[in-house]
Design a protein around this nucleic acid. Structure first.
Lengths: 272, 272
DNA sequence: CCGCTAGACTGATTTACATCAAAACAAGGC
DNA sequence: GCCTTGTTTTGATGTAAATCAGTCTAGCGG
């Protein structure tokens, strides 16, 4: 609960106001986020927001209503969508944080990504029209829904939108390839350093402190995501504290030495 | 050279006929592949081919000419596109094989993918409009060029095409995420088993032998791709031979025990 | 034909992590 | 308040895979 507060100190409804339900229904109109995209704290950082700044009025109105209609509120551990369920929408994280988890053939859970405000979730569902992962809220989280069929329709009418969607998807490809590289070729220390730097960058990009923030996920989740044992994550974190690369207190990180971490990233690369 | 022959025993020009040049020029019209998509050996397995089966004649003609115009021929080690260079086209591998290599900040090479006939290369360039990788032919290889600007234009006119491009990109996302999972959570043996199975599947999908084929890449390249040392790849390969999971002779693999490899994949998963 | 290089393979040694085990702490329920 | 349950941390031990150090073979250029 306090975890949620620090992630983004945005003008968000107090936790106590958040309705409790375990899954977001598609039918019920959520009134929590009545404001249009224009008022959103994400500002320019959001995908739909870029749509609304487009020239053609018809499209703008269309999209604005498309996006506005349902803003879902999730509490910790709520599921946004399930692996294997029919794909119909993309979601933009507005506040909070979400993890996407893939259950493999053997029943093991693998975290494929953490998604912070401004990130888009659900892209993995487009190819098979079923979600390839389960999306779970790590904190109290609000998302905007982008029904994909409608998005496709608008995209086919407005080339700029189409182009933008292509770019969004290509960005995801690049991100995943970078992650492949990390997992295949970097040491535990470097993975963790890179992970922290990426988080830091994310916050900075949103005009939040880059050297001091709260981790929305547990050590175990970090380990799972980075292909490391929990113990390794802990040990490296304490090692980083000893070298003064950062300070931790539970899930909050402070005094992040960004330059130091970057140095760590560049020096000793595994030569395969 | 003989390596090229076995990869796909398709009706392809003899290696000696392949012109030698180190990079494919954009301006020179390549006459090597005059036939339209209709005659292509890839048949239904190719992306553009699906376009040409669309209903609208105007679009069909447009796309057919778009794709037909240049079919590039590459010889081993030729570069199709360079990391950092301006992105303008996607490529479909027609015959042969291509690897995509990413050079990281420290100057280390990381192979992000191997691409066999029917695969699409260049998607990583869309987001930044610069290629994120360098694509290098592993064998004598022919590709079809899909200028992206033109593709976008057609996509915005024909919803089916747009949808199809979305799916292609989403497929790449899924593939990469699966690879992340492999690199983060599976043992060396399992990585190699999975790698071989994927190759096998690819060949089977193209109506070629699933249990006997030629590897277009070296052990070193396999290791780099899978995040393993060359020595490990060799050792596991000989181990597999001892357990009768396969036979190798240089780059050719035979008597692949698909069921056995699959069993190996499912049993002992690392619990992180 | 012969040296030369690149790739494939094998063995010995080291090491970075995982695993196992257990304590300390925090948070929520009753 | 105490008890339960999950998370974080630390230490000891084991091991998979990297590294180091070669040999062997196949192509290739002279």
């Amino acid at each position: 609960m306090q975890a949620a507060m620090a992630i983004n100190s945005l003008n968000r409804p107090h936790p106590s106001l958040i309705p409790t339900r375990s899954e977001v229904g598609r039918s019920d109109v959520d009134t929590a986020g009545k404001a249009g995209c224009g008022d959103c704290v994400l500002g320019k950082l959001c995908l739909p927001r870029i749509f609304t700044s487009l020239s053609q009025d018809s499209v703008r109105g269309h999209l604005n209503s498309l996006v506005r209609q349902n803003k879902a509120l999730l509490k910790r551990k709520d599921v946004l969508f399930h692996q294997g369920h029919e794909f119909d929408s993309l979601y933009v994280v507005r506040t909070g944080a979400i993890k996407t988890v893939m259950l493999d053939e053997n029943g093991t859970e693998h975290i494929t990504g953490f998604h912070l405000p401004g990130d888009i979730v659900g892209l993995d569902g487009i190819s098979t029209s079923r979600y390839a992962t389960t999306a779970i809220a790590l904190d109290s989280t609000s998302v905007c829904t982008l029904p994909f069929a409608a998005l496709e329709k608008v995209a086919s009418q407005v080339p700029d939108v189409q182009h933008h969607v292509f770019r969004i998807m290509a960005q995801e490809i690049q991100k995943d390839q970078h992650m492949m590289l990390t997992l295949g070729h970097r040491s535990a220390e470097q993975r963790l350093a890179g992970f922290l730097l990426r988080l830091s960058q994310h916050f900075q990009h949103r005009h939040l402190a880059a050297d001091s923030f709260r981790l929305p996920m547990s050590r175990g989740e970090i380990g799972n995501f980075l292909g490391l044992a929990v113990e390794t994550v802990c040990r490296i974190l304490t090692r980083f504290q000893k070298i003064e690369l950062l300070q931790t207190d539970g899930r909050s990180v402070s005094q992040l030495d960004i330059a130091g971490l970057k140095a760590l990233m560049s020096t000793p690369v595994r030569e395969l």
